[in-house]
């Protein structure tokens, strides 16, 4: 039995770690700046964004946002229970069985849930789709979503039967595939002003030491000068709302952030609703199967150590 002080210190450490990581390393990816080699129109990504948005806005949101009393939420909850993923209900007659693996992937729990997922899908999906082709990309997307649904259920010993919804498991798979295929690609991110002060020493060090890979976004015009480089006696820009970062930094940090809560879920079982980090983690790991879905020549090029 851990003493309350150790528990408190653990909590404090974990909280601070999260705050630092969130503040310093939570740039919001908004676009992939890399070259799209096949110049494929990302119809698959577009279609997924449109379907997810329509399902939420037309089918879920009215009942969710127009509810004035708790009782008004009943139709919304009915849908969650009917079409959300519940691993215990795959064989029960009062469900649609394993079809929920598909339906749950296109449902969301709120506007921000939808927005965040679609933003990540937009950022990382296009290039992965380009590497796979539309049909194979969609198959990979569904496969990742299925892996996330299945293994977050299998690995979580919780007895509470809350339905899982959201595209994040599948999108985590896409992000994992991006990490495998294009780790060095640059991602344009929006960095919250709140993080400016926290990242100041890091950016300053990077600038002074000329650490490659961290570039200022060229597109942003309203830069503010925050400090003076003491070595070169020139201005350096510490505050930039848009910044290009190597994909691996964000994706690895995303992965790391999922690990601790996932282990917690596996150990004790998640008893309440919220972010299913275990689905993120397992979806991310499903990306190891991306080599079954990428284009033929890209596969040979990848293993020859050539640029993708």
């Amino acid at each position: 039995m851990l003493s309350p002080i150790i528990l408190f210190l653990y909590f404090l450490f974990y909280f601070l770690l999260n705050v630092i990581l969130m503040a310093v390393y939570t740039p919001l990816p908004v676009s992939d700046t890399g070259t799209v080699r096949y110049r494929t129109m990302p119809w698959g990504t577009f279609a997924l964004i449109v379907i997810n948005s329509l399902v939420f806005l037309l089918w879920q949101a009215p009942e969710y946002y127009q509810a004035e009393t708790v009782a008004d939420l009943a139709p919304y909850i009915n849908k969650l229970w009917m079409y959300g993923y519940r691993e215990t209900h795959l064989l029960r007659p009062d469900s649609i069985g394993a079809f929920t693996t598909f339906t749950s992937m296109f449902m969301h729990g709120g506007m921000w849930h939808l927005f965040g997922n679609m933003l990540y899908l937009w950022t990382f999906g296009r290039r992965v789709e380009d590497a796979c082709g539309t049909v194979r990309f969609l198959l990979f997307y569904l496969m990742s979503g299925m892996v996330a649904n299945m293994f977050s259920g299998i690995l979580n010993p919780s007895t509470v039967d809350l339905p899982g919804i959201g595209a994040s498991g599948a999108i985590s798979g896409v992000m994992g595939a991006y990490l495998i295929l294009f780790p060095g690609a640059q991602i344009t991110c929006m960095w919250a002003p709140a993080g400016t002060w926290l990242r100041m020493p890091f950016v300053w060090l990077m600038k002074v030491l000329h650490i490659p890979g961290f570039k200022d976004a060229k597109t942003w015009k309203t830069e503010s000068v925050m400090s003076i480089n003491p070595i070169k006696n020139t201005y350096i820009y510490l505050h930039n709302s848009l910044i290009s970062l190597p994909a691996w930094t964000q994706l690895l940090f995303f992965l790391i952030l999922q690990i601790a809560p996932s282990i917690e879920d596996i150990q004790g079982g998640k008893e309440v609703g919220g972010v299913n980090t275990l689905a993120h983690l397992t979806g991310f790991l499903a990306a190891l199967m991306i080599f079954l879905y990428v284009r033929k020549d890209l596969l040979t090029r990848y293993f020859a150590g050539r640029a993708l």
Binding site: V70, A71, L73, A74, I77, N78, W81, M82, H89, L90, L91, P93, D94, S95, I96, G97, A98, F99
Partner: peptide, 19 residues
């Protein structure tokens, strides 16, 4: 997917917990 198809074509309302 035989089981899921059977369940889909013979829908039974799910047991929904109260608020």
């Amino acid at each position: 997917f035989s089981q899921a198809i059977t369940l889909l074509v013979n829908p039974v309302p799910p047991c929904i917990p109260t608020i």
